[in-house]
Every structure is written in C-alpha cells, then in structure tokens.
Design a protein around this nucleic acid. Structure first.
Lengths: 125, 125
DNA sequence: GTGAGTACTTACCTAAAGGTAAGCGGTTAC
DNA sequence: GTAACCGCTTACCTTTAGGTAAGTACTCAC
C-alpha cells in the first residue's frame, strides 16, 4: 500500500484539532449521568428528590457526587432558600446552556438511533 | 415551596422524551475513546497503527476492543485488502456519519470550553 | 413521641474500564 | 538468520464508576 504524503494539506492539523476538542469535551462530560443531569436542570430547576425521580435508576450517592462535580465545574448552582424547612433548588447556570446545541443534537440522534435499534430487532425475530 | 401542577403542559412529556433520547445516545457512545475514534475514522479511513498514533494514549488492547465494539454496532467497517502483506483498513460507515452534527457541536463546544478553562487558570495565578 | 419527608453521607462491594508489558504469527528488508 | 513492522492477543493489575443499604440530622404533622 502506497501512502501519499501531502504536508501541504491543511486538513491534517484541523483534524487533530477537532479530535482534541472532542476529547476535551468528553473529559468533563464523561459518565453515565452528567449530560442527562445537565439537560434535566436546563429544562427546569429542581430539588434533589425531584431529580432522582426523573433520572430513574440513579442512586442518591451517585446523584450527590455528580451534583457536586457539576457545581464545581460551574454547570449548576445550588440554591438554599431559608424557608422552614429549607428548600434546596439546583439550577442550571448560563454556562451549562452553552451545551444547548450539543444536547439538542444528542437528543435528535438518540431518537433516530432508538428507531434503528428497534427495526434491527424486528428483522432478527 | 408551592409546587404548581399543570398536567396540561406539553413540556413534561417532551422533557422526559429528550432525557430518554440523550440517555440512549450516551449508552452506545460511552467511554473515553468511542466518539473520538469515530471522528478520526470519519475524517479518513486508517489502519490500526495509524489510529493508535493519532489517539495518543490509547493502548492496543483498548483500541482493538473499541474497534470490535464499533464494528459490531455498525459504526465502522474492517476492510482486509489481500495485498502482500495484507493491509487492514478501518473505515467509517454511513451510519457513523449520522453523528456528524453531534461531533461538530462537541468540537465547537470543546474548543470554547478549553478557552474558558485557560482563562480561569490565568485568573487563579 | 412516632412516623414521614428532605437531603444527603457512609461503609461496603462488584463490575467494568482501562493501563502495562509481553508475546505471537505473519511478512519483509538486510 | 535476525531484526523490524503489522495487527493484534493475552495475562495481569489498578483504578474508577457505580450500585446497595443503612444511617444521620433536621423539620413537621399528628
């Protein structure tokens, strides 16, 4: 196999750049729950138990950990309202809204993907 | 805190739906390398060693596993060319190209995010 | 004071992800 | 023959994610 080298092509550096960008994005957005959690709070602010009900399957331990992590990374804000009893509301920050397009695309793709899986299951049976 | 229930709001079901979509998408695209690997092969078909060089840090074991996984899920195709010695070229399928928008958004966001991190590092020092 | 709800924390455990290093079967170049 | 390159595989080990179950500190309703 011949490999044609063309150092003048601008694509090489661009490709490496986009690869790095995606890798960097994945680094903060990793894990099973992070993006779903951000999406949930972008849709509306919620309390701990409300989130746990919406993200069925997440344990309180993992939820607490992820919330701390997201707060540390400036994706969400933890608001304590001094009512009696105190209510704690988690809300998405402006920064997490910069993920709007990413989330929208993942939403679209996830829907299509589920359709595809369904159809390949039908074909199998 | 008063919770105003409004079952007529269409958003509730839509939110749950988009959450499910995102969760489904993340289910197949999980892991440290999967999306980067797809991106790399969407940009151009490559051989095993070429991929390993581009995704600096990935071990041959993990790369082999991820490639098998992605092939099984129809994201990539493994082509064996019977030249001497045989050359094995991995290429992205049409299906992996449906991730184009997702990857583009992750690319954009990842770049912005790195900028943000850089600036907050400067502020700290 | 008993039970329930809120927002967690803690201890414990398992499974999976992922890394290291070595090897292997083939080919090719010297 | 031997060294090197390709495309992996294997054995081994560490780290991490993530789950379970219980508990805690507080408040409120009854």
């Amino acid at each position: 196999m011949k490999i044609i080298k063309n150092e003048l092509l601008p694509s090489r550096a661009e490709c490496a750049g986009s690869l790095k960008n995606v890798l960097d994005a994945l680094y903060v957005l990793n894990g099973k729950w992070k993006l779903a959690l951000i999406l949930s709070l972008v849709q509306s602010s919620k309390r701990f138990n409300e989130i746990q009900q919406e993200l069925t399957g997440i344990s309180s331990k993992v939820l607490a950990k992820e919330l701390k992590d997201l707060e540390f990374n400036d994706f969400i804000k933890r608001n304590v309202y001094p009512s009696t009893p105190v209510s704690i509301i988690y809300e998405a920050t402006e920064y997490s809204r910069t993920l709007k397009n990413v989330l929208a695309e993942l939403n679209t793709w996830g829907e299509q993907h589920r359709e595809k899986i369904k159809q390949s299951m039908r074909r199998q049976s």
